[in-house]
């Protein structure tokens, strides 16, 4: 009898397969990687790369939008993608099938989250890279730790929220709608598409501060703003994200379901269930 395959190997195998699935689902790659880049190009085209007043001071269009859209891209690659993929795997019976093998749950989850984190990191870096190469985005070396920290905490937080989204979604079909219905209004309330300024209603910034997206935008924005003092690490913002991520993880661990809700083996054709993930 051989030894058990190591945890690291199993997590790695699953991450690799998840990556493959992501690449083979072009709609997912489009929404989390390409669309935010297109938005950056469009915003700069619409406004020109001139300076305007933002909550971080007077910035060029790209200096404001590149970090904000990197956040959006990361949230989409983690929160939306994990929510859709995992609920689809639950509803089609893929999770139940794994459950019948000696695969540890934690290795499966690590694979799913690791793959999403990698995709998020690539998407976020791509956004910053394009900003830097094409639009003169300024990056200060002294603020690199703040950038990396914000990236890391944000990715962990939204990956955890993605798992919770899959747990909450009653069916895989409702997961994309749930993801969009939460992330889009939050993006507006968090200053992703339009900078929040002195005219913004107080209640809106108050609400935005309570949820994890604005802290992500603010912590990354601060790290890219020329008006902040290095190291520009916003600990309180990071703490809000960490709190949300932890709460989501606890919630998911308690309520995780391996099977489609109300599952009975007699219901629904097996082939009908093997549909591809969809997005609205």
């Amino acid at each position: 009898m051989n030894d058990w395959p190591s945890f690291a190997r199993l997590a790695w195998v699953h991450a690799r397969y998840q990556n493959r699935l992501f690449v083979r689902t072009p709609v997912a790659a489009f929404f989390s990687t390409l669309l935010p880049l297109v938005m950056l190009v469009l915003f700069v085209a619409v406004f020109g790369n001139d300076t305007f007043d933002t909550s971080f001071g007077t910035l060029t269009t790209a200096q404001f939008y590149a970090p904000a859209l990197a956040v959006f891209s990361i949230a989409s690659a983690t929160y939306t993608n994990i929510g859709i993929f995992l609920s689809t795997q639950r509803d089609t019976g893929v999770l139940k099938r794994h459950r019948g093998t000696p695969l540890p749950t934690s290795a499966l989850m690590c694979g799913v989250i690791g793959s999403a984190a990698l995709i998020a990191a690539v998407s976020g870096t791509l956004m910053i890279g394009v900003g830097w190469l094409v639009y003169d985005l300024s990056i200060e070396a002294a603020k690199m730790p703040a950038i990396l920290l914000s990236f890391t905490v944000g990715i962990c937080c939204f990956a955890s929220l993605g798992v919770a989204l899959a747990v909450i979604a009653p069916s895989a079909a409702s997961a994309p709608a749930l993801a969009n219905a939460t992330i889009l209004p939050m993006a507006i309330a968090s200053g992703v598409f339009i900078s929040l300024g002195s005219d913004t209603a107080g209640w809106l910034t108050f609400v935005g501060d309570l949820f994890p997206l604005r802290p992500f935008v603010e912590s990354l924005g601060a790290a890219f703003s020329p008006f902040t003092e290095a190291p520009a690490i916003e600990w309180d913002r990071l703490a809000v994200m960490a709190l949300w991520g932890s709460a989501a993880a606890v919630y998911s661990a308690r309520n995780f379901s391996w099977e489609i809700r109300g599952a009975t083996s007699r219901r629904g054709g097996r082939r009908a269930a093997a549909s591809e993930p969809t997005r609205t």
Binding site: P5, V13, R24, T92, K96, G100, T101, S265, R270
Partner: peptide, 29 residues
Amino acid sequence: VGIVLQSSGFDVELTVAETIELYAASYRS
């Protein structure tokens, strides 16, 4: 124990060989 359920799905974008390889990785022998 090997299990073949009455109905369960696949990640339909994987190939047959990839799918079997993925599940093979979970077992000792």
